[in-house]
Amino acid sequence: MSTIITELEKYAHKLVDDRLVVGAGGNLSMRDEKNLYISPSGFDLKDIKRDDWVPVNIETGKVNGQLKPSSEVEMHLECFRHNKEIKAVLHAHPTYSVAVSSTGENIPPMFPDFPAMLKDIAYIDYIIPTTHLLANAVAKVISSKQAIVMRNHGVITVGSTMKEAYFYMQLIEEAAKVYAISKTVGNPQILTEKECEDLRNLSSETYRSDLLKKQ
Rank of each mutant, 00 (worst) to 15 (best):
E74Q: 13
P188W: 04
V178W: 00
E85C: 06
P94N: 07
E164Y: 01
N136C: 03
L212R: 05
A135P: 07
D47Y: 12
P188I: 05
V149F: 06
T206K: 12
L199Q: 05
F80K: 10
K119H: 04
D47S: 15
I4V: 12
S143N: 11
T6H: 09
V89G: 13
L212Q: 05
S71N: 06
S101Q: 05
V73S: 08
M110S: 03
E33M: 01
P129G: 04
L202E: 09
P109Y: 05
M110T: 07
V178N: 07
V21L: 12
I58P: 00
I142W: 00
F114T: 10
M30F: 11
E33Y: 02
Y11K: 11
E193D: 12
K87Y: 13
M169V: 02
H153A: 10
D198P: 08
K119D: 05
P188T: 07
E197M: 13
I128G: 00
E74A: 15
T130F: 13
R208H: 06
K68V: 13
H132T: 15
S101L: 03
R200Q: 15
I121Q: 02
K163T: 11
S102D: 03
I156A: 05
V21E: 14
K87T: 09
C79N: 13
V138L: 13
K10E: 07
L212G: 05
A180R: 15
V89S: 09
M150C: 08
T103L: 13
S41Q: 10
E174Y: 08
A139H: 06
F43T: 01
L133K: 15
A88G: 14
K213T: 13
V63A: 01
D51I: 03
E164M: 03
G25H: 09
K214E: 12
R50V: 10
D17N: 08
K84I: 06
G154W: 14
E173K: 04
I107H: 02
